[in-house]
Design a binder for these strands. Structure first.
Lengths: 183, 183
DNA sequence: GTCTATAATCGGATAGAC
DNA sequence: GTCTATCCGATTATAGAC
């Protein structure tokens, strides 16, 4: 019988949230065990009870990202604006929760402890499959994905453009034109 | 009067090349002063003569990237295939020299010592200006850039697609159609 | 489940010889 | 310009109390 209120997050999740925040603000070098623990309000020893090593902590973060990406992709499939607009909107807004997680993972790219690239590739593949389910032409679907991924990269370096919302509209109408011509 | 043969690289450049290689293979945590120095064939002390600190080393790398990007953008402006094909080809091939440098810099994103994001934003702006000089519609120009940046991101995580060459062709013809309609 | 204390290692940087 | 030797701080991880 737990005494934790239903609304409070378990420490394990709090620790992963702290890792995400630290990765976004200071990169992988800022994500020390001590910093992650104290941001979550526990001691280093407390963290190491939940994740036995830095590698386990990182892997836990990546696993959660993949699970969430799969769920996010499923949601987007039935978005009222359509998959294209939904995907591009999410990827161009840096404080979208799922975008935050991806950006944090990107800042982890290259660390020796875990295979960040594989986890990100898996997440991206969910989104491609989702897009491709609504756009029959695989080349066009890939192009849409690449535009969204371009947004991710620009969010990573914090450089948006005034034309970005117009780009989203243009791509949406491009896809709509194609759907019309194909029928 | 130097005794160095004309073809040998100065140690300073060798050190920056070593940093690039290490960033690509192991991320920022692998790019220790010791590792960079020994890859370049010198000692840690030897490195610190040329770059007085880790911060100076990183900044030297970013400065070189910005200089090279400006030169690369100028070259692409007069490429025989046209700017669009040239930009997309370069960004989709992970072992292109200038792409390697950008990917290495992306793996440095978030480190506290230097402003990687600003340097990358400057490089990307050169390319946008170059693309925009050949495509009058700024929204279309930005879309082309975003597709290329999507390639960069996928190169970062090592996940290409079979459709990528077809995407390049499609975007090129998309731009050609627009140029025709506008005239 | 969480804490403190401590061991062991590593990375950045200085000093000074050659 | 390059080297070795050394210092110092930071970081991961363990041990064991509560």
């Amino acid at each position: 019988m737990s005494t934790r209120p239903a609304h409070a997050q378990p420490t394990r999740e709090l620790l992963l949230d702290s890792l995400e925040t630290l990765l976004l603000s200071g990169g992988s070098s800022a994500a020390t065990l001590e910093a992650v623990a104290s941001t979550a309000g526990v001691s280093k020893g407390g963290l190491l009870y939940h994740f036995g090593s830095k590698e386990a902590l990182y892997q836990g973060f990546l696993d959660r990202m993949v699970v969430r990406s799969r769920a996010e992709a499923a949601q987007i499939l039935d978005a009222p604006q359509g998959v294209v607009a939904a995907y591009l909107d999410a990827s161009s807004v840096a404080d979208d929760p799922s975008t935050r997680t991806v950006l944090a993972a990107l800042r982890l790219a290259g660390v020796p402890e875990v295979d960040v690239e594989a986890a990100l590739a898996e997440s991206f593949s969910f989104w491609y499959e989702t897009i491709a389910r609504r756009i029959d032409d695989p080349v066009l679907a890939r192009m849409v994905q690449l535009v969204g991924d371009g947004f991710y990269l620009h969010a990573l370096i914090g450089s948006g453009s005034d034309h970005d919302t117009a780009v989203v509209e243009r791509v949406v109408s491009l896809v709509a034109d194609w759907q019309r011509d194909a029928s």
